[in-house]
Simulated assay, not measured.
Amino acid sequence: MLNVFVVSLKRSVHRREKISKEMAEKNISFTFFDAVDGSLGIPELALDYDYAKRLWLTSGYMPSKGELGCYASHYALWVKCLEMGEPIVVCEDDITLSENASSTLSLALEKVQHYGFLRLEEVELGSPSVPVEDLGSSTISLMKDNYGGLRSYAISPKAAMRLVKHKWYFPVDCFVGANYIHGQYSYQLSPCLVESHGQYESTIQEPKVYSKSRTPIYRKPSRELYTLYKKIMLSLMYWKKRKELKVR
């Protein structure tokens, strides 16, 4: 499985040692993909970031360098997927693999050809999903959204093409979940590849620090309207796909 990439900063030696040991124990071949280090400055891939939409429609404040580096890293891997012309699996370097990781990876690379995007970690608590294919020992479910991290997923070239066409203005996981923008639905393969995650703090993206003073109050109306629009569109897309797939 040479189509497995682990996103990791070059300087994250301990993390690389840990994930290398995990992969070896599960007999999985993989390649480290050097993450874009946002601490070194704004990545070249982010030069066309849509800051107006970011400020007036989403968070209301400028993205951090770490967030840009995280987005640039995943974006670069989507481009890599297009260049290869084959599906790939992307993992972050702080995951713990499940017992059946090798067979899960093989299945993911097979099934993602049809579904486009397969989440290989647990769905966030409260995020709706519905089973669409029973594979006996595994299940593929349609997700209403895909917010809450991109620690492990499989993606096809067709899906990657849909994602790279758009300017950035969301955090990368929120963008992937926004199917009303790019048309790519998110699915989850269960049991998951990832048993657990988050043993370490993120090295690519610094921890979020929330402050009431960060977002000017005059941007609140446009942000709330867009949040409402987003919720409506996600619901419409979800029920449209469920009807198309004939699942309740």
Rank of each mutant, 00 (worst) to 15 (best):
G66S: 01
P216S: 11
D50P: 03
I42N: 06
E44F: 15
P221K: 12
D37R: 09
L234S: 14
L163F: 15
L120H: 03
I95F: 07
G41I: 09
L55G: 01
L120P: 02
N27V: 10
S129V: 02
Q205K: 15
D93M: 01
S190Q: 09
D34K: 11
L142K: 02
A154Q: 00
E201W: 05
N146K: 01
K230H: 15
D50V: 04
E244V: 09
A108S: 13
S186R: 03
P63F: 05
K241L: 06
K167P: 03
P63E: 05
Y71R: 04
G69P: 00
N146V: 02
F117E: 10
L68S: 00
Y115Q: 09
E92M: 02
P87T: 03
H166M: 02
C174L: 08
V112S: 10
Y49V: 08
Y61I: 11
K10Q: 13
Q199L: 10
S196Y: 03
I42W: 11
V6N: 07
H166Q: 08
V209P: 09
N179W: 11
G85F: 03
A159S: 08
E121G: 05
M1V: 10
W78H: 01
K246N: 15
L189A: 04
R162P: 00
A154R: 00
W56H: 07
K10C: 08
V36Y: 06
S64D: 04
M143D: 00
Y187S: 04
L97C: 06
G69E: 00
E206T: 11
K240A: 13
T31E: 14
V247S: 07
W78D: 00
K212C: 10
E121R: 08
P221E: 13
S152M: 06
M143C: 09
D50W: 06
R219M: 11
G60K: 05
I88Q: 00
S222W: 13
Q113S: 15
Y49D: 07
K231G: 09
L9D: 08
G136M: 05
Q113W: 10
N27I: 07
T139W: 00
Y51L: 14
M143S: 02
K167E: 11
V13Y: 11
I19N: 11
Y75R: 07
L47G: 14
I88F: 01
A35F: 07
L40I: 11
E224G: 10
G149T: 04
H166V: 02
H14K: 13
L2G: 14
F5M: 05
S196C: 03
R119D: 07
C174W: 09
A24F: 05
L47K: 15
Y210K: 14
K144T: 03
N27S: 14
Y218T: 13
P221M: 10
A24E: 12
L193A: 02
K240D: 12
Q188K: 11
G148S: 09
I217F: 14
D34A: 14
K212H: 12
V4K: 03
K10R: 13
G183K: 11
V123H: 01
I28E: 06
Y61M: 13
G126M: 05
L225C: 14
L236D: 13
P63A: 05
G198P: 09
S156N: 02
E67H: 00
S29F: 05
V36E: 06
L97H: 07
K18C: 09
A108G: 10
